[in-house]
Nucleic acid binder design. Structure first.
Ligand SMILES: [Mn+2]
Ligand SMILES: [Mn+2]
Ligand SMILES: [Mn+2]
Ligand SMILES: [Mn+2]
Lengths: 219, 219
DNA sequence: AATATAATTTAGGCAAATCTAAATAAATTA
DNA sequence: TAATTTATTTAGATTTGCCTAAATTATATT
């Protein structure tokens, strides 16, 4: 199956938005890809033709088994390149998405398997997201909870659910990155803000907006 | 100046074929890019519009100063990626061109400067070709001669002028790579073949076809 | 110089990926 | 339920990059 760059971007977007096996709306895809709903309808017809999505008009879109398989390969490439940029080229986690968005379209089995080996076959990317293996399998880790719902006192940052540069830069500034250990000091009911502390640093407060997007595991 | 992938490939091809400042023919570009002369004419009009080439119909094509500047950046990206593939991902020199042909189109100043630093700011690629610096300057090395014209006895392989997989694989098989030191044993006038020897190995003969494409410097 | 051949350009078309505006269907609200 | 709002699709265009076939220009050969 040979996909164009545009087709790959659609497949990946649908995969991301599906999150399980719900059906995805035309509008949601258009918003995610910064394009127009009419364009999504056009592409939906093509992808259905290629048997990569299930689609009946007005009924939403979902990936076929074949489509999901391809999506996982694209996601794998994207996340491996993000690792490369951070681990080898010292980019920070808020700078890599855009570049990986292009690198992910260079298709070469050998390139990707070698890149993966070169990086030590990582299983998560710089944002804590899992990297599918060459067969598209995702090793399931312990389920994460968002910081705004956490109850345990000792926590470790294991991911971010919003990957906008805005959030990532904010977290950079606060000294929060993947693997950072946090003590949960207090939760304020009034605005659902939460006070946390990093070892050897003064405590500080995070808004619900922020804490909702920080995924943690308890230690 | 924002170029499409197709435009970048044309600019790079013109740069390669120009080799100095000759004018390049429609046919030559079509052949190099495996496309049709009519398509080249179409693109020539667009690139002229963008002031990247000088072009008057029937008079051939040449890069403007601006066009050459862009070409050098593309060449830089291409060759740096080739270095990455060989030095870091252990590809052999006959496998990297195709992949670099795609990677070269990922445009990010920062990516390329970091990649270059990561590789130790190399000045030649795995085929012995020079890598322009960020300003497009090419450090001129001592001029190379092809093996079929060499006279000195002790030689070092410093490049290949034909980069087809066929030649590169052949050289691999013979144990000839960049930096290989050769003793020139004999040149046979009859067919212009040449007998060479690698240290600690039996001597062997190379056809003119082959020796023409091996660039050497004398030691 | 006339003719033949080769190189190049033009004309006309096609496919991919997008768009805007208008039409239609679905969902929500009164 | 009827009206309104929202979501989605269709119709019709545009841009980019490519193609084939035919016309034109340049070059080489007699
Ligand atoms: Mn992408
Ligand atoms: Mn990521
Ligand atoms: Mn290319
Ligand atoms: Mn090269």
């Amino acid at each position: 199956m040979n996909l164009t760059v545009a087709e790959e971007n659609y497949i990946k977007s649908i995969y991301k938005l599906q999150d399980g096996d719900q059906v995805v709306s035309t509008n949601a895809i258009a918003y995610d890809l910064a394009t127009k709903p009419a364009s999504v309808t056009d592409m939906a017809k093509k992808l259905k033709e290629k048997k990569l999505i299930d689609y009946e008009k007005y009924q939403g879109i979902s990936l076929t088994t074949e489509g999901r398989k391809l999506a996982l390969q694209i996601v794998r490439r994207h996340r491996l390149w993000e690792c490369f940029l951070v681990d080898k080229l010292s980019f920070s986690w808020d700078e890599v998405h855009e570049i990986a968005e292009e690198l992910e379209h260079v298709r070469s089995e050998k390139l990707i398997s070698r890149l993966s080996a070169f990086l030590g076959n990582p299983t998560t990317d710089p944002h804590g997201d899992p990297i599918p293996d060459a067969q598209g399998r995702i090793s399931k880790s312990q389920p994460l909870i968002s910081l705004d719902k956490a109850t345990a006192r000792r926590l470790e940052v294991a991911g971010v659910s919003d990957q906008s540069s805005a959030l990532l830069e904010f977290l950079n500034a606060k000294g929060i990155r993947l693997g950072t250990q946090l003590d949960l000091i207090e939760r304020y009911e009034f605005d659902n803000s939460v006070e946390v502390k990093i070892r050897n640093q003064p405590a500080f407060t995070l808004s619900e907006q922020v804490s909702k997007n920080i995924m943690v595991k308890s230690l």
